[in-house]
Simulated assay, not measured.
Amino acid sequence: MAIEPGRRPLRASDADREEVVEQLREAAAEGRLDMEELDERLGLALSAKTVDQLPPLVEDLIPAEAIAGAGEPLVIKGGMHGQTRAGEWKVPPRIVAQGGMGGVKLDFTRTVVRHKVVEVEADGGAGCVVLVVPEGWGVDLDGVHGGIGGAWNKTKGERLPGTPLLRVTGSGGMGGVYVRNPGRLQRRKLRRALEQ
C-alpha cells in the first residue's frame, strides 16, 4: 500500500489484523508456512499499528490464480443517466465506481464473493455512489474524503466471521458515498426469490 507524501498511514483496526491472522493460519494449514514462520508473522500481525504493515506479511502467500484475477478493476460510470449493477453478478477484488451526474448503485445482496476484501474506489461526482451490502458484511469508509456529499455507513451490526470486508476509498464529491443494508421491501423480495 503506497502512502501519499505528507499523508500519515491509516491506523490498523482489530478487524484488519484479524483478517491477516486468518490468512496466515490458512497458509500454515496448507503447508505454505512452517510453525516458526507462522509464529513470527502472527506476532507481527497482532502488533501492527498501521495498515501498511499488514500486506507484506501475506504478499508471498497469495495463490497465483488470485493474483491473475486481481488485474484490471471493474469500472462503472454513472454518466448522465446512472448505472446499476444488481442481481447475480461476479464481484471482482477491485471496483471503480464513478457517480457522474446520474449516480452508481452497486447491489451486493445476491452476489457470491470469493475475496476476503473488496476494494471500491468511489467518486460520488454530482450524482452519488450507493453500495448495498448484506447484513454482517464489514465496511471500512476511513479512506473516503467526504467532500460536499459526505460518506455514510448506514449498515447495522458487526461484521460476521467469514463475510467480506468492503474497503472504500475515494471522494464523496457533491453526491456522496452511501453504504447501507437492503431495505424492508428488498429483503422481502430476496426472501421470495430464495423460496422459489
Rank of each mutant, 00 (worst) to 15 (best):
M1E: 12
R8C: 10
R8G: 13
R11M: 09
A12L: 08
D14Q: 12
A15H: 14
R17S: 01
E19Q: 14
V20D: 00
V21G: 00
V21W: 02
E22M: 09
Q23A: 12
A27H: 02
A29S: 14
E30R: 11
E30G: 10
D34L: 07
M35Y: 11
M35V: 15
E36Y: 12
L38A: 06
D39F: 14
R41F: 03
R41P: 00
L44D: 04
S47M: 07
S47A: 10
K49G: 12
T50Q: 14
D52P: 04
L54S: 02
P55C: 07
P56H: 11
L57N: 07
L57Y: 06
V58S: 08
E59G: 13
E59F: 14
D60P: 04
L61E: 06
P63D: 07
P63I: 05
A66T: 13
A70Y: 05
E72D: 15
P73A: 13
L74C: 06
Q83R: 14
K90Y: 10
K90R: 12
V91K: 02
P92L: 06
P92E: 06
P93F: 07
P93Y: 07
V96W: 03
V96E: 06
V96K: 03
G100W: 02
G102C: 05
V104I: 11
K105V: 08
L106D: 00
R110H: 13
T111E: 00
V113Q: 07
H115M: 12
V117G: 03
V117Y: 03
V118A: 07
V118D: 03
V120G: 04
E121D: 14
G124D: 02
A126N: 10
G127N: 01
V130Q: 07
L131P: 02
V132Q: 04
W137C: 04
V139K: 04
D140C: 02
D140L: 02
L141C: 05
D142E: 15
G143I: 05
G147N: 08
T155L: 04
K156R: 15
G157K: 06
E158W: 12
R159G: 14
P161G: 09
V168P: 00
T169L: 08
T169M: 09
S171W: 05
M174W: 11
G176M: 04
V177G: 00
Y178R: 08
Y178T: 08
Y178M: 14
P182V: 05
P182S: 06
R184T: 14
R187L: 10
R187Y: 10
L190C: 10
R191D: 13
A193T: 13
A193V: 12
L194T: 15
L194M: 11
Q196P: 09
